[in-house]
């Protein structure tokens, strides 16, 4: 579903991703871990199409098509969803109205009429339950005055509403207390299905207690230096990143 080959990306003239490679098949959950500054968020932003990230070389195919050709909004309508690390606030625009616009933008893309009010409310209700969001929250302005946990739950709620093919979670777990973490993880688990792929970026192993990954990758210096099963995450939690660094010193210092 997603195939990244030899991707090189720079921001402000500084190269961050170096010959980056990754394959995600439909139905798989991939976790990417690694210390700060290794390019995890760059990867997320690049896939979503953020303008300031410059693609130096390489290719990204999504559902067999060239993802890099599309604008950020086209990518979103085609099914790429990014749960932001720092969701923005939009004063005066309720969660409901924002979602209605987003759902209809996607429907338009596929040649469908705007969603009927009744169907929309039903969809909202169903997805709100998924991440334990109260109705009261959907009439508030998007993210304005939301707590950290509410913002992240709102991201997962939007993910559920938009029915994406590829879900990228950029450090969704950071700043969450254990209850919020559990709610967010539960939401994600319920969204898992055979057609959908997940790319979960995280610092900590603890999220992976709740969302069990099929593959864990360790990123260092702009590339994946080690991949393994969920036990790899546990080992990182226990031993830190130093052993990885030593194992790969040659590659990292390139």
């Amino acid at each position: 579903m997603l195939s990244i080959k030899n991707l090189n990306v720079a921001i402000n003239g500084k190269q961050i991703l170096k010959d980056f490679n990754l394959e995600i098949k439909a139905g798989e959950v991939h976790a990417i871990m690694g210390p700060n500054g290794t390019g995890k968020s760059t990867l997320a932003s690049t896939l979503a199409g953020r303008a300031e990230y410059e693609i130096l070389s390489g290719e990204v195919t999504f559902k067999g098509k060239n993802l890099l050709e599309w604008s950020p909004d086209e990518r979103a309508r085609e099914g790429v969803f990014l749960a932001f690390q720092y969701p923005v606030e939009i004063p005066g625009v309720s969660v409901t109205n924002f979602m209605k616009a987003a759902v209809n933008a996607k429907r338009k893309h596929y040649g469908l009429d705007p969603i009927e009010a009744k169907d929309f409310l039903k969809l909202m209700k169903e997805k709100m339950d998924l991440v334990e969001i109260k109705k009261e929250m959907t009439s508030r302005s998007l993210n304005e005055g939301f707590s950290g946990g509410e913002k992240k739950r709102n991201e997962i709620f939007q993910m559920a509403m938009l029915d994406p093919t590829l879900c990228i979670l950029d450090e969704t777990d950071s700043g969450l207390d254990i209850d919020a973490l559990r709610i967010v993880a539960n939401g994600v688990n319920k969204l898992k299905n055979k057609d959908r792929g997940f790319l979960i970026i995280t610092h900590y192993q603890r999220l992976l207690n709740y969302i069990v990954p099929d593959v864990v990758h360790v990123m260092f210096g702009g590339r994946i230096v080690k991949s393994g099963g969920k036990e790899l995450a546990l080992k990182l939690e226990e031993q830190g990143y130093d052993w990885i660094k030593e194992e790969n010193s040659e590659l990292i210092n390139q």
Partner: peptide, 17 residues
């Protein structure tokens, strides 16, 4: 960018904001 990432074009995003 946030609005784009939810599928809204720049026009739609500005109008909504």
């Amino acid at each position: 960018f946030y609005c784009n990432q939810r599928g809204l074009s720049n026009e739609e995003a500005v109008s909504m904001i």
